[in-house]
Write a protein that binds this DNA or RNA. Structure first.
Length: 424
RNA sequence: GGAGAGGUGGCCGAGUGGUCGAAGGCGGCGGUCUUGAAAACCGCUGUGGGCGGAAGCCCACCGGGGGUUCGAAUCCCUCCCUCUCCGCCA
């Protein structure tokens, strides 16, 4: 969430910048400004009364020791009156404070100045393209047909076991999945990311920390008896590892990675977008997270984009990198690059990674701070994360792009991980 | 799941109603000493918020929330968590 002080000090800027996200913040910002003012005044009054109360309490103790009962009783009377008054003021303060919080939480992150204006994904800006689309002397099949043909993914079986959107991988199909995970993790480790195996379920505080709550409540699966959330991405547990932590400047950047399954309800999705692996409720992903110094977080973002690009290139998939326009940017992000790979069987670009800088939006919630060298006052860090990579669509693109009439070839870099070079 | 014990500052640990934001130790930082280091000694060493130009003053926080009291780390209620034993179990 944004910092209240920043909103109050720069109301026009906040309103203006959020227009880029097609978010009309005028009413909320105005209310925040008013409520914050009221809150401060009340707070000052309450604190003054409390200060007096504290003084009295100390005096009363002394007076009793000195045997000055009358004076003590007198002070007691004053203190009781103060208590009443404080109670009244706090009855006003608490709802005010709560309301203020509810308002602040509704404001999305402010987009970076380089984020292009735009309504939706059609206004995104293509930054780079790479790789060559494969050529076929036959009609390439979509991955769901290939999956059936080679018996490596069974979508219907997943429906039987759980529901739609829970594919079952089988045989060499399962091995390919595992190979991709291992490959991505090894690459991340070589790049300096510390590998974790975090919990796949988190509590409410953790889900709030990275911004899934209250914004995306309906997108997460929730356990009935223990009230946990199934993680929609490893970003959630990984970033929260550093919740309420104050780092030393020299510890930055912190680089984390994890493989986890991801669970998403994807309420409201339908149609051709959800065919096969295009959109599923459970999928595997290797995530990279960085906790960075605010002064160089955009260099870190570039570095992460280059890293993800190297992964996609190593798999030999045609790709393009797009910078999301304001309208397509997520609630929590200040800047996001999406990676799309071309998948021949569907003749479509599929989104396989999203790399974002959240600046202080998450760290303000999680209170992740660092202490600048030699300084006493702490500063909020910037948090960044990216998929490196999300498996289903990469998997789909491999099937579709590497299909031959003899079978599906395995990209060279994966062969050491699969132990075979073709699925037939 | 049952029974018991307990949650205090970066860590260990004292504190069971009143100058306690919290003894003592460890760690860390600065200094004295030393060619340098160690040792010893001295000093400093939580976070957030409010007011102030600053020095500083004030408020809150001893797992979370609520209560009793003039006054709560300390008493009561409740939730969460940890440990030990038993049960169950990959």
């Amino acid at each position: 969430m944004l910092q209240i002080k920043f909103i109050v000090d720069n109301p026009d800027y906040v309103i203006e910048r959020l227009k880029i996200k097609n978010f009309d913040a005028k009413d909320i910002v105005y209310q925040i400004t008013e409520l914050d003012k009221e809150k401060r005044e009340l707070q000052k009054e309450i604190e003054n009364l409390k200060a007096r109360q504290n003084t009295l309490a100390k005096q009363i103790g002394l007076l009793y020791k000195q045997g000055k009962k009358d004076e003590a009783e007198h002070a007691k009377k004053e203190s009781m009156d103060l208590k009443e008054r404080i109670k009244e003021l706090e009855a006003k303060f608490d709802p005010l404070d709560k309301k203020l919080f509810e308002l602040v939480v509704q404001l999305p992150n402010i987009p970076h100045k380089d984020v292009p204006a735009g309504r939706d994904e059609t206004d995104n800006e293509i930054i780079r393209e790479g790789g060559d689309k494969p050529a076929f002397d036959f009609e390439p099949l979509p991955h769901w047909e290939l999956a059936a043909k080679y018996d490596i993914i069974n979508f219907e079986l997943g429906t039987k076991l759980t529901g739609s959107g829970f594919p079952v991988f089988k045989g060499k199909g399962a091995v390919l999945q595992r190979a991709l995970i291992s490959y991505f993790l090894d690459k991340a480790r070589d790049q300096g990311f510390m590998e974790y195996v975090p919990p796949f379920m988190v509590n409410e505080a953790t889900a709030f920390g990275t911004g899934q709550l209250p914004d995306k409540e309906g997108q997460m699966y929730r356990t009935l008896l223990d009230d946990f959330y199934l993680i929609p991405t490893a970003e959630v547990p990984l970033t929260n590892i550093y919740r309420d932590i104050i780092l030393e400047e020299k510890q930055l950047p912190v680089k984390l990675t994890a493989y986890t399954p991801c669970f998403r309800r994807e309420a409201g999705s339908y149609g051709k977008d959800v065919r096969g692996l295009n959109r599923v409720h459970q999928f595997d992903k290797v995530e990279i997270v960085q906790i960075a110094h605010p002064d160089n977080s955009y260099e870190v973002l570039d570095e992460m984009v280059e890293y993800v690009e190297s992964l996609v290139q190593s798999l030999g998939l045609p790709y393009r990198i797009v910078r999301l326009c304001g309208g397509d940017l997520s609630f929590t992000s200040a800047m996001t690059y999406d990676f799309e790979v071309y998948s021949a069987g569907q003749d479509r670009w599929l989104e396989v990674s999203s790399v974002s800088n959240f600046e202080t939006f998450q760290s303000n919630r999680m209170k992740i701070r660092f202490r600048p060298n030699g300084e006493k006052k702490t500063r909020l860090v910037h948090t960044l994360n990216g998929s490196a990579l999300a498996l289903p669509r990469i998997y789909a693109a491999i099937l579709e792009n590497y299909q031959t009439q003899d079978g599906i070839k395995i990209p060279d870099v994966l062969v050491p991980y699969t132990g075979f070079d073709i699925i037939k």
